[in-house]
Design a protein around this nucleic acid. Structure first.
Lengths: 219, 219
DNA sequence: AATATTATTGACCGATCGGTCAGAACAATC
DNA sequence: GATTGTTCTGACCGATCGGTCAATAATATT
């Protein structure tokens, strides 16, 4: 096997795997792990069912792989904040980043939500390990901001959960939002309006002076 | 059938139906409509599978019945607000009521969430009908509050969604919250702290002067 | 006591589940 | 062109799916 053909083969394999992962993400996110069937995933990917198993091994392996892919997308968020950071800037970015991630990977977000609803059987370890550390360390920094008088003395954990829930809501409850607003998908104007609202309420609610308004390219 | 025996029979029937509904709510809320099996529900209820179908007719009928029961619990929320109401009092109550409802009916809340995640196949009509009207009418009142200068000029729809998401989060993501906090269930002190936080941030964030602090019995 | 009604459930139905496997089809190496 | 290795997939497996049904048991009505 030459380097050329190896690359070609791998590229072909990658393309097929991406097709399967994308199809599986849709089905799993809608119906959860148990509710999803390999046949439904195969239909979505327009491949024979046996082909799915040939590439992914098993239903569980496919599911875990999707979870890991989604988790890895979150690694960069709020990675480099310090006690000296500007709370307004950081929280603004946090809100916008989470909002963009949700809009960019709606199926991944819903997949995560379904996993949590089922009691997080495959993510228990991650939640009580990595994610707990993530929250603890960020909470410590936010507490320092409060002590420095940069913001009100609120419980940082509840603040993080608030931003999580508020942003996640618009992807996971998209069916509800659409039904209520009467729009099939949120327009860019809606998204901008929502970001603006969340920043206004959360920053003001935490007693943070807003950083000078900059024109954000949030999508 | 005498009146006495009729009551007795109906009481017996009611008790069995409640057992089934409760068991089904647990299973459906964890695994969604497709992921739930009648056998799992029967095991949970400690009844033969055929008995479930004898009382409920079909899987779909059982599911729809659960959805309706959950929806009916929400009917009273924010029912009697007017342009003259005090925003601080109303939003405070809204936050606490939603928080209590989520804690009181965690399985029902999760059931609803799973239905929305699946694309709301059984609730599309409700969302774009009753619920849309509910939101529209409340939004109109909130807008009047803004015009009267009682609060900032924020989009009332985003405000309603914010309160929904923030409160719902603690029931639907209970597995995540537990994992991160390292507590199996939220303590009463945690709940009080969360309510306090949400009121502080949301009211202040909307420019609403807080109503004099009253000792609330929120659970 | 006899009869009618309702409640209960094991056995079974066709369909679908996740997963296996043998062999066809295809491509790379010699 | 023969050989080797990889990709692909129809056919099949036992288990489970939602649902039916006939029988039995229990209860009401007469």
């Amino acid at each position: 096997m030459t380097a050329d053909t190896a690359n070609q083969e791998n590229a072909s394999r990658d393309r097929i795997e991406q097709t399967i992962l994308s199809a599986a993400e849709q089905v799993f996110s809608q119906h959860g792990y148990r509710g999803a069937s390999l046949q439904a995933i195969a239909d979505q990917a327009k491949l024979p069912k046996a082909n799915i198993l040939y590439y992914m091994g098993s239903k569980q392996a496919l599911y875990v792989r999707l979870l890991n892919r989604m988790m890895s997308r979150w690694n960069a968020v709020l990675e480099d904040i310090t006690a000296e950071s500007d709370p307004g800037q950081v929280l603004s970015d946090f809100i916008r980043t989470k909002m963009v991630l949700g809009q960019r990977y709606p199926e991944g977000s819903k997949l995560f939500a379904a996993e949590i609803l089922a009691g997080a059987p495959f993510l228990k370890e991650y939640l009580s390990g990595e994610l707990k550390e993530w929250v603890t360390s960020r909470a410590a920094i936010i507490r320092q901001w409060s002590q420095q008088g940069k913001m009100d003395d609120v419980d940082p954990r509840w603040l993080i959960f608030l931003i999580w829930s508020a942003t996640q809501h618009y992807t996971e409850y998209s069916a509800q939002i659409s039904g209520i607003l009467g729009e099939e998908v949120l327009s860019d104007a809606d998204l901008a309006s929502i970001c603006e609202f969340l920043e206004h309420v959360i920053l003001k609610g935490c007693g943070i002076a807003r950083t000078p308004p900059v024109a954000h390219a949030y999508l």
